[in-house]
């Protein structure tokens, strides 16, 4: 039972970050492999402004999110757009975002040093009892936030005009441009939002493990896995994928040891991809001739 609750909470963390993969995939059919570094970027920016005592914690979070959003939009414009020009088989953007990840990781390490730094911003201390399992408040906050963010995104995509544009772009970017909307601009905005979410995740996560350059790496793997399991084209996908992945890996590591937990999670990805390449909630894209 403990493992189940902890797995769900952990799944929440992955689901929150997975949302940034899903967002960019829905609108641009690309993934940013440097998301892990945006997690760290957010955490360190917030750390840098932690001393601004006049700014409430929410404001500090906002600074971190904004910086990551701007860098994210620029990354899309200059490192993704030039490398996705040759149709759906063109995956050079994948290599360029990996390269970006190297550069950012290296830069952050050189500037901040490799060891974790304590982050107090937006930090809840203590634990609460959930169905008999002790869960740290911070982790619970992240999991709850994952649900809130997902619901907000779903509502926004259904009810707002920006959401309408996003759905239109995901279905047919060319026709969207005939409606006076630039798909490239939509992509930049989406990247900004997605990297903002990554930065938010990073800040809240840093409050539990400290801010370090490599803090995003384990999250990256798990959240790609979660996004793929849930379905890269579904906003609800991360919650389902996160729950499955989190519970499976937590229960497995509880029973057989930590190493098998992650292995089981990643094997889940392979099983799901074989069975449903589009993910559990994903929409199958028709093959056009």
């Amino acid at each position: 039972m403990d493992a189940l609750v902890l797995g769900l909470v952990l799944g929440g963390l992955y689901a929150l970050l997975a949302q940034s993969f899903v967002l960019t995939f829905i609108t641009t059919k690309t993934l940013n492999f440097a998301v892990g570094e945006f997690v760290a970027l957010g955490a360190f920016v917030v750390l840098a402004v932690a001393g601004w005592s006049w700014l409430p914690d929410v404001g500090k979070l906002a600074v971190g999110v904004l910086v990551a959003a701007v860098v994210g939009a620029a990354a899309y414009r200059f490192l993704v757009v030039p490398f996705m020009t040759e149709g759906e088989h063109d995956v050079r953007w994948l290599l360029s975002t990996v390269a970006l990840s190297f550069v950012m990781l290296n830069l952050i390490t050189n500037v901040e040093g490799p060891s974790p730094q304590r982050s107090e911003t937006a930090r809840l201390s203590g634990a609460v009892d959930v169905l008999g399992a002790g869960v740290s408040k911070q982790q619970l906050l992240i999991a709850v936030l994952a649900v809130v963010v997902t619901v907000l995104l779903v509502v926004a995509s259904k009810k707002t005009s920006a959401g309408l544009v996003m759905r239109a772009v995901s279905q047919d970017p060319e026709t969207t441009s005939l409606m006076g909307v630039s798909p490239r601009l939509v992509g930049m905005v989406t990247y900004a939002v997605a990297m903002g979410i990554a930065a938010l995740t990073g800040t809240l996560y840093a409050a539990t493990v400290g801010a370090s350059p490599v803090m995003g790496a384990p999250l990256l793997v798990a959240s790609i896995a979660v996004a793929v399991v849930g379905g890269l084209s579904s906003l609800w996908g991360p919650l389902l994928g996160g729950a499955l992945y989190g519970v499976l890996s937590e229960v497995t590591s509880y029973e057989f040891g930590a190493i098998w937990g992650e292995t089981a999670g990643l094997l889940l990805v392979i099983v799901v991809l074989v069975w449903r390449p589009q993910g559990l909630l994903g929409r199958r894209t028709e093959v056009k001739l």
């Binding site: 290599l95 390269a99 190297f102 550069v103 830069l107």
Partner: peptide, 17 residues
């Protein structure tokens, strides 16, 4: 604010592309 080997490899990668 500088890049060491892995970062420079990343830059090289982008430049190659």
């Amino acid at each position: 604010w500088y890049l060491s080997t892995p970062g420079l490899v990343g830059v090289l990668f982008v430049l190659t592309l």
